[in-house]
Simulated assay, not measured.
Amino acid sequence: MQDNNSLPNKNKSYLKNIIHSSGFSSFSSALMAIFLGLVFGFLVMLIAAPGNALAGFQYVVLGGFNRIADVFYFATPILMTGLAVGFAFKMGLFNIGASGQYTMGMFFALYVGFMWKLPDNIHWIVAILAGMIGGMLWGFIPGIFKALMNVNEVITSIMFNYIGMYLVDMLIKGNSVMYISDKTRTKYLPASAQIPSLGISGSNVNLGIILAIIIGIILYIVLQKTTFGYELKATGFNKYASEYAGMKGKTNIIITMTIAGGLAGLGGAFAILAPSAIAGSSMTYEPINIIAANGFNGIAVALLGNSHPIGIIFSSAFISHIQRGGTLASLVGYKPEIIDVVIAVIIYFSAFAMIMNSALAKFIKGRLEKMHTAHASEDELEHTDLDKVSDNNTKEAE
């Protein structure tokens, strides 16, 4: 028969294992960062316009629920760029070039959409794959510099953001099939090149969000359940030890940056190939020499999700949610940039995740130890009382 007294100890041990797990640490730090960021954002609103602070804050926190389809649509590209940054970070690389890879992927997708005549049922699929190839090319080059010449990937990838942006703008402006000069933007893509819509009226949400989530899950399986993923993470932890163990560090660097670039390129393809809420139209690109913001938003998403593919899926949805709510805050007199302040503070606190994890873990550990000590004292008193009763019974029997 199982001792009932052992059950609380088993429950405490199970709870302790959860608390000390890396997943719990990441989750708790993300929640703390979000909470502190929202509190700071509310204080900024309170200073800017005290009378509308509560209404504006409600829009920020809850407004996205009224535009849930748009939340998923805008989450799609930052989910992919977040995966691009997070995947490279697992290898110990900081892929700050997601914007350039995103833009190059978008151009490759546009080129196939406009210039290639393909059957309707595969045109959009080929365009997506072309976007992935464009991003892979723009990730491969910094990977080569890093692996073969040990050039810091932060420097090369951020330089390639500008090179990619200017190059794409130049190529689009020089292509009369794609570009409408008097409107300073590209034409609408043919219907065959557009990603199938999910059929939600008044929204651009499409099959891209489902594909992006599936890619995130596949990435998690590759990193956690395969030898290839283990080698990548081992190289990221210590490239010298991994090379001593027979792993190909330089090859892994090139492969990692290429895959990361492909993920960001897919983000660009998903963004530009999306059907518009206006029937018969699509997304368009305006070549105005500005680096794509979605690449840098991906860095924020990756940091908040602790570079974990599943965490990045949820953090992209959250960032998109408060961005949609932030646009509604203008209804009560706030500038949309207020949400950028909130996101910036959230990411700032996410950067101190280890400190917050340590403080939270120490607090919970102290509480558990006090509970354990109190429970042990109660058990000791109970056993002492039972011993006294037993001794009294023995004396009476004698």
Rank of each mutant, 00 (worst) to 15 (best):
S203Q: 03
G131P: 15
L167I: 11
G113R: 00
G113P: 05
V151C: 02
D120F: 12
N161K: 12
P190A: 03
F107G: 11
K146N: 05
M104S: 12
S181W: 01
T184D: 11
M91Y: 01
Y188Q: 07
R185P: 00
S181P: 04
H123C: 11
E153D: 14
T156E: 02
L129K: 07
N161C: 09
A191S: 14
L148V: 10
S192C: 10
G100C: 05
D182I: 03
A147W: 13
N95Y: 07
I144W: 08
V177A: 14
G113C: 03
G134N: 00
F89W: 13
V112C: 06
G86M: 07
M159W: 14
Y102G: 10
I96S: 01
I172N: 07
M136H: 05
A88D: 09
V177G: 03
G143H: 09
W124R: 03
T103D: 11
G174I: 07
A127T: 10
K146A: 11
I144P: 05
I172F: 10
L167R: 03
I122A: 08
M149L: 13
N161G: 08
Y102C: 09
M104I: 14
S157V: 09
M132E: 02
I163S: 05
E153K: 03
L137R: 02
T186S: 14
H123S: 08
M149T: 07
Y179E: 02
A88F: 09
D169A: 13
I200R: 05
H123N: 09
G202I: 01
F108A: 15
G199M: 04
P119S: 11
H123Q: 11
G97K: 12
E153I: 04
S176T: 14
K90N: 15
E153L: 02
Y179A: 09
N175Y: 05
Q194D: 03
G202N: 14
A193R: 12
F108H: 08
W124F: 15
G135Y: 06
F114V: 02
V168H: 12
W116V: 13
I144H: 03
M159F: 12
N121T: 14
G202M: 03
G174E: 04
I133E: 08
Y179V: 06
I128H: 07
H123K: 06
A127R: 08
M104H: 10
K90Q: 15
Y102K: 13
Y111L: 15
G131A: 01
W138D: 00
F94E: 07
S203T: 04
I195F: 06
S181F: 04
S201K: 12
T186I: 04
A147K: 02
V112S: 11
I133D: 09
Y111G: 00
P142Y: 06
S99Y: 00
T156R: 02
G86E: 04
G113F: 06
G86T: 12
I195T: 15
E153M: 04
L198G: 13
M159S: 01
T103V: 15
Y162F: 15
D182G: 03
D169G: 15
I125Q: 12
I144K: 00
G105H: 13
K117Q: 14
